[in-house]
Design a binder for these strands. Sequence first.
DNA 1: TTTCCTTCATGCATTTACGTATAGTTCTTG
DNA 2: CAAGAACTATACGTAAATGCATGAAGGAAA
Lengths: 295, 295
Amino acid sequence: MKEMPGPIDWNQMRALLATVEAGSLSAAAQRLGLTQPTLGRQVAALEEDLGIAVFERVGRRLILTEAGQRLVADLREMGAAADRVAMSAAAQSQSVEGVVRITAADIYAGHVLPPLLAKVRKAAPGITLEVLATGSISDLLRREADIAIRHVRPDQDGLIARRCRDTAAYVYGTPDLLDRLGRPSNGVELARCEMSGAIDGIEPFIAEMRQRGVPLSRANFPLLTQSGMTGWEWVCRGICVGPMVEAVARQTPEVEIAVPAIDPIPVPVWLVTHRELHTSRRIRLVFDMLVEHFS
Amino acid sequence: MKEMPGPIDWNQMRALLATVEAGSLSAAAQRLGLTQPTLGRQVAALEEDLGIAVFERVGRRLILTEAGQRLVADLREMGAAADRVAMSAAAQSQSVEGVVRITAADIYAGHVLPPLLAKVRKAAPGITLEVLATGSISDLLRREADIAIRHVRPDQDGLIARRCRDTAAYVYGTPDLLDRLGRPSNGVELARCEMSGAIDGIEPFIAEMRQRGVPLSRANFPLLTQSGMTGWEWVCRGICVGPMVEAVARQTPEVEIAVPAIDPIPVPVWLVTHRELHTSRRIRLVFDMLVEHFS
DNA sequence: TTTCCTTCATGCATTTACGTATAGTTCTTG
DNA sequence: CAAGAACTATACGTAAATGCATGAAGGAAA
């Protein structure tokens, strides 16, 4: 009505961007650590200030208007710049107190990291560790995590990756299941078993196994999951056989290597962080401890 | 200490950027329509969240630390993106209610615009007009104004400029002063008079007058000001002679043209706005009314 | 069709953040 | 050297924003 054109509330812009990217007010609220009514009000206030309707309320769903879509284009750049600021700030923080986020496959988060995390906490009690156990690879450039543990070579620019000692992986199964399968003794026999597998990781695994004389195909994987934990649970319960890194399987007494004659599969381990963040004291500290542990 | 790494408060970033650009908390507060304690707290909270010291409190002055300088680099990009969002939003606002900011030389703001503003307000009562009477040219690209009235050809990209009918300017003086000066009747005699002038506009004016046979030099301008209003006041009070557009001088009965024999100086008039903002309904409305008036 | 889950809107109590007023400090000006 | 101006830091009362709880409405699945 008679709005003095004071600068727009940047938090309201953040609310709009988060809502668009998350797809709903509720999801955006969770992501920002706020509540859904708050976000709803912020977006509404922004629409009021701007004088345009960003969302069209159709049923329970918010769909962007044309005007909203044009806004979001520039808004994403603003968000990217905000991320860069946060990144730059984190990089220059020389405090050993604060949060360090680590992302890793859920198997690693659950079975490999715990003793390591305890060591870090003991060495630097001021550091709060946050572990993102995620199947999909999170985006380091968007600062969803500070350090990532990956098993493929990172290809993004701006990242520094440190390759650690390879881990050996084998195909495991419970003794009970292996007995029922007739104790396969070579690759060809193993290729007749059903296996658990990760949804987006079986192709390279099949190729790797074929080099070792195990003629697998997609037909060997009737059970797929994006959760490494789930797949491993299937193996531990004798539902099927499946591959696992040796460091994890060693902690699981109820399984054994299905065919010891087959050579282990080398699994590379990369520790990845931003080039920026490598100058942060506490992130550097955690990174170095991870490197030491994996080397 | 134990800060859950929720996204950074964007308003705190805005506070920091404004403080850096304004040079002090107080100035930034005025610019953002907030108060100094509020801004101080926001900046302090941001420093706490980021874990780094952005400012070094030395005496009454805040000077950026090295870390702060690196932050600000990205922060400016964020601010620029925010401006683009605001611009895009304003451009798409099809409401005839809202604020339209016009920037013009103070002389225009005081003597030429008033009747025009009344006309606009009558035609569109929902529009709030805000006039920035500024000596220096404000930055349209940073959305300090929606429409600018200028007398030089705009060279920035992204702007659309509409040239209007030129205005004639003469050198004026009070009859009393002209009598004391011996009633100069040609350019050479006029060049012996003292004149008022704008700090950053006398060079082209001198060149223009020389073409008309008035051999002026910088020595003719012992009184300089960046305020057109002030300079004209000097002329009206008989302190010196000085140039003025005819449309303004006509409203001032106490002055007369110093040397009628000299040809008038054509003063171009450009109306300038963003290419973006030209699609805004209310800005387009005001712009068109200005064009109509000046043509 | 019916049921259940998800999502957005609203009312109310509370906490947070803001503005006003004031004191303290430093740099400048006469 | 002294007085004033400008800026930042602190205290306190108040207003605004937030969170919780609830309701309503739409869509998916049985």
